[in-house]
Design a protein around this nucleic acid. Structure first.
Length: 284
DNA sequence: ACTACGTCCTGCTTGC
DNA sequence: TGCAAGCAGGACGTAG
């Protein structure tokens, strides 16, 4: 379940292993991962073949490779996507979807079991692909505007967890790190944004940064074997999660069993004592 | 502009 | 033992 730290690990791996290489061949083995490319699979391959990769960039959970054509290869890992660099002749992964031959030897491979992720060629997208122009900067970005974020959160009536997951407000935060940051801030995810004090939002943002930063240092967190970094090594299996996935386990702060509730077709984990539900609960 | 909800996918786990 | 339901969940489209 790659969130910002995992995608950053992938971006760094691509920077190290792919930047400077030319894509000699492109094989789309399944159409779904290129569904968002208006050219279709053949056009996707044609737009990439022979191009040289000039950089590896990221915003939130998206990454892109600017090309010498001025276009960019834009990608999202979804839930289970991986970008692997493998030697030529290495056995195909079970869910190998797209294969790129590299002029320096080796292959870049997009592997994705559940296929929520995907790749596309962004026309003129080297600097910032227009397809992701609506995605906010992430909190690790030096140009992230803290004051703007705080002001926008405090104007919204939606629950603060929804707001943390709103990539147009703040990018890179997914279900796992949202729950962890809320636990640290001792704020219930259903608390409406406009009912939070300024200082609470500032503190919450600080916790979001801390959680992401710690995961970044550890090379990204992984919770199943699906997530593998660009070198094919499984990510760090984090045992330091206080809330996420800890249903029934004692809260590390007060000992109360962590609770799990349904939330937007997924789960939320929180401490019912440290993170009391708002008095006027909103429907989920 | 904002909110809420359904949909897309596969494979592992759970329950009868 | 076998099968089906449950579950994981980010982003997007749509309706209100």
């Amino acid at each position: 379940m790659p969130e910002l730290p995992e995608v950053e690990v992938v971006r760094a791996g691509l920077e190290r292993h792919v930047v400077g290489a030319r894509l000699t061949t492109v094989d789309v083995l399944h159409p779904r991962p290129v569904r968002r490319d208006p050219r279709g699979p053949a056009g996707f391959a044609a737009a990439l073949t022979g191009r040289r990769v000039e950089a590896a960039r990221r915003r939130g959970k998206y990454f892109w490779l600017p090309l010498d054509s001025g276009d960019a290869l834009l990608g999202h890992l979804g839930m289970s996507g991986q970008m692997l660099v493998q030697p030529v002749g290495a056995a195909d992964e079970r869910n190998l979807r797209v294969r790129f031959g590299l002029d320096r030897g080796g292959e870049l491979r997009f592997v994705d079991q559940r296929m929520f992720g995907g790749l596309l060629v962004s026309a003129g997208g080297a600097e910032l692909p227009p397809e992701i122009a609506h995605i906010a900067r992430d909190p690790i970005d030096p140009e992230f505007d803290d004051e703007l974020f705080v002001a926008r959160v405090r104007r919204r009536t939606a629950g603060v967890k929804r707001l943390l997951l709103d990539q147009g407000l703040i990018s890179g935060v997914g279900n796992i790190y949202a729950d962890e940051a809320l636990w640290r801030a001792q704020i219930h995810g259903d608390r409406p944004g406009d009912r939070l004090r300024r200082g609470q939002v500032v503190e919450l943002l600080g916790h979001v940064r801390a959680v992401l930063g710690e995961a970044l240092v550890q090379g990204g967190t992984s919770f199943d074997a699906l997530y593998v970094n660009v070198n094919g090594e499984s990510g760090y299996f984090d045992r330091s999660l206080a809330a996420y996935g800890q249903e029934g386990e004692p809260c590390p702060r007060c000992g109360t069993p962590i609770r799990r509730v349904a939330f937007m077709n997924r789960s939320s984990f929180f401490c019912p004592r440290c993170q009391p539900a708002p008095r006027i609960p909103r429907r989920v």
